[in-house]
Nucleic acid binder design. Structure first.
Lengths: 333, 333
DNA sequence: CTGAAAGCGCTTACAG
DNA sequence: CTGAAAGCGCTTACAG
């Protein structure tokens, strides 16, 4: 049972190793009889081609690198499901690279990825900086390796193919909803940390607010729950507010808790909306209205796009925007 | 900039490729001067050894396979963080395999993993069946490849090293807490789907209940939120209940929502506890008391154990249980 | 301390 | 349709 090699198969099937290789990779090039014989032997011996030898000889790895920040973000994890499902269909393996550590600079990781001879890179990192973006572009060009940005946006640039949703439009729509309910003091609660994606949500918010001739009010909070609570309490003490749009569901829920402690009625006194539509949006009380982001699809479509690129298939749409929707539940009128 | 090979380095440094290889892998075996020269050239050329050639020649991949069901489970994602951090420290790459599809049987995936020549396997799947367990054991023995079960338990067997927490004890303790509050009708809400881990929580619950001479009551629900709601409403209509222990935080929260709709006071009328201590336990109102499972550590320790096994270091403890704790918040007295 | 050479297990023109 | 042979880019005894 200990790993059979292609030689063992060739011997047992009474053919050359070239024929074994063909039977596996180009079945149509070998006579049906011999092909079947070879395949049968492969079965019997439980033979699986050594991935290293194959990769070395063919210069293809059928492996893609997926680079992510912090796995524990719900969105990242769910995207991975989509990625993995599509990867399986197209027979690609996934090499996972989790960024997030200061000690290993991203450039080193990218070099490691190159050394790993991956056929493509799926890059999910909505905190992408200009420097990182430029470096990615350089990698792509120098090594001729396809890269797809998934749910990570670098504005005004389509050098690297990407798939995401129109966050600005989504931000606009959800703000509009609150405006249409007659709310006048609508806050956007964003993050102190810089995420491109959140910038776009803010931009959409701003557009809607300005159109309605209201006053834009953006508050930035940390993602940490305990801090949020204090922060909200403090901040809203002196402010009038009748609408809140949070860039993440969890922030919206966090805000609602504070609101409840202060005995304000949702949605009557304050309308609240989140972003993402995690399962906790349903678990919250009142159930949270929010933008639904098709996270799984983002991963799946990103991976699919990458497979096309790797196969040199023609790709018309290099920047794909998936449709989103607004889910209205109990925190809006 | 396009990938330099070891030959290029050897040429530029005026040494043989054997020396280059040594300078990288066994620096102490080469004279400091030449070593430095070689290393400098490597820098200049941006040389990175081809992982395939290296793997093929050395029969080691410095790659581990991590096999998981469904990434989107919060526990899996957080464990991945721990795994990735430790993997990075010990310079291992991660090949990710997501199970979950009916069409690709697990055995095929495991064979693929073998073909990928990984040095070790980290297996996270708390739905492990006897068949799967036996197959894993066979893989481990046939191919002499280290495997570590992480947060996945197969009872009464230590053939495969594992790291987890003592779920039975945790179940016992959390139940005891509710009993000590004087509750008499304590339910455990578990899942219809079979998870070893949940069986153990139930066993702990049962033990505590029996010690206290109370009547054990286990209800099984699906994980789906919408179904839960109906289910709970229906189920508890005719029942007395003053305590609920859910095998997952989200189920506990789900239950609390139904309780609130029925205007029962938590924790006064019903004490509620969850398992895991996800961030949503803090986001829930009232804030959820629960067993804290050190998820990140589980992943980190599992990976660390695997590195030891791969290096043939001596391992005393083949079945490690990490400490857990009980976090008391507002859903208990 | 260093080099020449064999070998890891495949793929892929090139002949036939 | 099939085989012999070179080559992918490394590592690792074996000499020296």
């Amino acid at each position: 049972m200990s790993k059979a090699t292609i030689y063992d198969v060739a011997g047992a099937a009474r053919v050359s190793l070239a024929t074994v290789s063909r039977a596996i990779n180009n079945p149509e090039k070998v006579k049906p009889e011999t092909r079947e014989r070879v395949l049968r032997v492969i079965q019997e011996l439980g033979y699986k081609p050594n991935a290293f030898a194959k990769g070395l000889a063919s210069r293809k790895s059928t492996t893609v690198a997926v680079v992510v920040p912090d796995m524990s973000r719900a969105s990242i994890a769910e995207m991975m499901n989509g990625i993995a499902d599509i990867a399986r269909v197209y027979k690609y393996s996934i090499l996972l690279y989790v960024l997030e550590s200061e000690d290993t600079p991203e450039e080193d990781i990218l070099k490691e990825i190159i050394a790993a001879q991956v056929d493509g890179i799926l890059y999910l990192n909505d905190e992408i900086t200009e420097k990182q973006y430029e470096f990615l572009k350089q990698i792509k060009d120098s090594y001729q390796i396809p890269i797809v940005l998934t749910n990570t946006i670098y504005p005004e640039s389509d050098d690297i193919p990407s798939v995401s949703i129109d966050y600005k439009q989504a931000g606009y729509e959800i703000t509009k909803k609150l405006i249409d309910e007659g709310r006048k003091n609508i806050y956007m609660v964003s993050t102190v940390r810089k995420y491109m994606v959140n910038d776009l949500k803010e931009a959409g918010y701003l557009q809607a607010i300005e159109e309605a001739k209201l006053e834009p009010k953006i508050m930035r909070t940390s993602g940490r729950i305990s801090i949020n609570t204090e922060h909200f309490n403090e901040y809203f003490k002196g402010h009038r507010v009748d609408g809140v749009i949070a860039v993440r569901d969890s922030i919206a829920i966090s805000f609602m808790n504070v609101a409840r402690d202060n005995e304000v009625k949702i949605p009557d006194e304050i309308g609240v909306c989140g972003f993402q539509n995690t399962k906790y949006a349903m678990l919250a009380r009142p159930q949270l209205s929010c933008v639904d982001v098709p996270i799984y699809d983002l991963g799946a479509v990103g991976m699919r796009l990458l497979t096309k690129l790797m196969n040199n298939e023609e790709v018309v749409e290099k920047v794909v925007k998936l449709p989103h929707s607004i889910v209205l539940r109990k925190t809006t009128l």
